[in-house]
Amino acid sequence: MATADRYNTCFVDLQTHPKGLSMYNDGNGVIPTLRAWGLTKTFGAGDVMTTALRDVSIELYPGQLSLLMGPSGSGKSTLLAALSGLLRPDSGRVLCLEHDIWALSEKQREHFRLKHCGFIFQGYNLFPALTARQQLEMVLRWSGISGWREARQRTDAILDLLGLSKKAKLRPNQLSGGEKQRVAIGRALIKEPSFCFADEPTAALDWKHGEQVIELLRAAAHDGGATILVVAHDSRLIPHVDRVFHLEDGVLVEGIERPLSLVAGDTAVAAEY
């Protein structure tokens, strides 16, 4: 409880806020695209038992870039996995676009991710044999979203957006770390997903390239209306995002560094999506 008390002094604690979870959902009619509550997750049993998530609740809105921070081992990746339908929590519910993610069948969940989710993981995880263009094209073609021709057009468009037009034909071992990360971002965004989850996309990059990456994600949120949640350690990113969450020991609190009111304008715009 000591932790929670400490946070109360400087952060708005979502659980104890008088208006509760719907505090941002009044007046201007912005409906969260992702709502989760009561998320708990423990690993192992007995002596080795770790509690990664303790009764976590969160609401995310379209057109917003949210940052999730916290010390190592605090459960950030676990939360991301639970929200995105990759790892079943022990208890709690996740509503994405009014779909109860963990009540869906495995197949339905897969289909939901296909239609609505993009991911950026730590490390680039690019196929070594394929060119930057192929890495992106593959997602569109294999997900059955578009045919060969359209896939090529959309791929070239997004490569252009990412500043990678000249690198389209290069393989991962011919690309710099920042370029590889941009390809990975492209792969996450090419489906134009409603959600994008990114786990430490900037960890391996210097500040200049990290900033570039976060700006790309912000553009995807603000211009594309996507709901984006990014895990990162670097507090220099805070000015670039709309909201900040802190996770410590499995307990989530929203930070006051970027209270939503400051970006209410963005939210209103995003509501149109």
Partner: peptide, 18 residues
Amino acid sequence: ASLKEYAVLRALGIPRWR
């Protein structure tokens, strides 16, 4: 050797049969 890359595609919802 490509498990991670395939895992990304799985996360993106691309079916296993592909």
